[in-house]
Write a protein that binds this DNA or RNA. Sequence first.
DNA 1: ATTAAAATTACAAAAGATAATCATTTATTT
DNA 2: AAATAAATGATTATCTTTTGTAATTTTAAT
Lengths: 139, 139
Amino acid sequence: MNNYMQIHKYLKQFDIKPSVQRTAVMEYLLAHKTHPTIEEIYASLSPQMPTLSKTTIYNTLNLFVDKGAVLQLAIDEKNARYDADISDHAHFMCNSCGKVYDLFSLNKELFKKPALEGFDINSVEISYSGICSSCKNLN
Amino acid sequence: MNNYMQIHKYLKQFDIKPSVQRTAVMEYLLAHKTHPTIEEIYASLSPQMPTLSKTTIYNTLNLFVDKGAVLQLAIDEKNARYDADISDHAHFMCNSCGKVYDLFSLNKELFKKPALEGFDINSVEISYSGICSSCKNLN
DNA sequence: ATTAAAATTACAAAAGATAATCATTTATTT
DNA sequence: AAATAAATGATTATCTTTTGTAATTTTAAT
């Protein structure tokens, strides 16, 4: 089975009807764990798919988020960023270079949903920001 | 000492030069712990200060955030929200009504900055979202 | 295989939030 | 008080995201 069909199957697990565009976006997200913005995804895919529109990227990602297949990160106030890794992990954003790092090794207790009387918690987002080591070593 | 002077003193603690506008914005934030948006702050203050401009609200809040006097929350993707309570606490945003709740009673361990090799962490943001009890009881 | 209906996509335009510019006002220093 | 610096306000510009609508593609039915 080729990669394209694997992603079809993957999308169907989230109750998402596959299309060429949706498959391409998910393939991109699974291959680029850099928490890309809409713009980056569009810029990367549009050469191969000249008719692709940015609206479709927006629609597709909103659908993915609704279906729980992708996380929309709020860590970057400027642009929404997307992450196909939906396992428990936190993020660190560098205020200098803007890069978003994954933090997998934190205590899993952090991601537990606290019991809040009468509240239903859907999502937990843990974000750190500061200066990354690359930027720190530049001066 | 009146309230206006108290806020003057408070701003100076953060190395912020007080002005009529800055004092009014900080006074508003200290009195309204609802994590207001720029728009809400402007709408509330502008009747009393007819010449107040939205630019000043933006400038003032950016200054407050830079000086560490106010937190800018990323929890709401639509608008930046501001919080004058800079003590360790998390937030819950209701996806139905949009209200942002404070969560003070969580384990303080959550707010510890993890040791990341070579990284300097400035800020920690812990955000939950879902449906609040008021909205849950509406249907 | 045709046709009709539904879903998806694409383009254009609009809306909304934030930033940049610059003139004006206010505060500070000499 | 004059000169300088800082803060404010009005306007404009930019950028992200959403919306409306039409075209296209897919699905289902005959």
